[in-house]
């Protein structure tokens, strides 16, 4: 059996004196889709950051394709080059660059100078709103539009593994449906997914496996169709499942 694309082993991580993860192990294999669910403050975003190389774990290790990667602020690009892409939560765009420059920064590396125009076209097809505003400074876009820009970058590239953190946050319901539609399309082409999502229903529908994170520990892992029942039986502080 080949090594999983991404594997976290006994990872502990946090911010300064605050600990957010206490020994988390999780693996995502090729073509697999995993939903990561949990209450606010359970450590989901921290886990996503460790998984994409943004945050250095204070203990444990992160492996991409079986090889341990030395994580850190300066190593996230290695994850990207290995095909692990991360769409961080919130308005994660370069506010001072234009929409097109934001996309070009990723696409030129991924598709080369020749493939740049094709990549931009696909992004504007996915989110026509971005095409209308291609020359606009990204910082002046609305919250939802910035979200689209941040997603367009990763959705168009169809990486080997896509880590998406709260991607539906701030988007209109119709756009959310469209985003999940796109996700299932790129899944069909072989992209593995690690989805962190408050809209549990959507996420579980898309994924075949689920992991429940509570207080920095994974307390349950299993097929996603069983996760609904597990979540019902546990009391969440917020983000009730539907």
């Amino acid at each position: 059996m080949s090594a999983p694309i991404l594997e976290l082993r006994e990872v502990e991580a946090g911010y300064g004196p605050f600990r957010a993860l206490f020994g988390v192990s999780l693996a995502v294999g090729a073509g697999e889709a995993v939903a990561l669910v949990g209450a606010n403050g359970a450590g989901k975003t921290t886990l996503a950051r460790v998984a994409s190389g943004l945050l250095v774990p204070s203990a444990g290790s992160v492996h991409v394709d079986g090889a341990q990667i030395e994580a850190g602020v300066t190593a996230a690009w290695r994850f990207v080059r290995a095909g692990v892409m991360h769409a961080p939560e919130g308005r994660s765009v370069f506010a001072s660059l234009t929409v097109e420059e934001n996309l070009a920064l990723s696409f030129q590396r991924a598709f080369g100078r020749a493939g740049l125009a094709g990549g931009l076209d696909r992004a504007y097809e996915l989110f026509p709103r971005l095409g209308e505003r291609r020359g606009q400074i990204a910082g002046t876009l609305s919250g939802g539009e910035q979200r689209m820009l941040s997603l367009a970058r990763v959705l168009v590239e169809s990486p080997r593994l896509l880590i998406a953190d709260e991607l539906s946050l701030g988007l209109a319901p119709m756009v959310v449906d469209q985003v999940f539609e796109t996700l299932s399309q790129i899944r069909a082409t072989g992209t593995a997914l690690l989805i962190v999502e408050q809209q549990v229903g959507h996420a579980l529908e898309l994924c075949d496996r689920a992991a429940v994170l509570e207080h920095g520990l994974i307390t349950w892992q299993g097929p996603s169709n069983e996760a609904g029942a597990v979540l019902e039986s546990r009391l969440f502080e917020s983000g009730a499942p539907h």
Binding site: V73, A75, W77, S96
Partner: peptide, 20 residues
Amino acid sequence: LSMRAVVESPRMTELSGVNA
């Protein structure tokens, strides 16, 4: 383009696959 991006956010630049 990369130099302007790094000034704003080295981490975001890394997430675009560029060695900041």
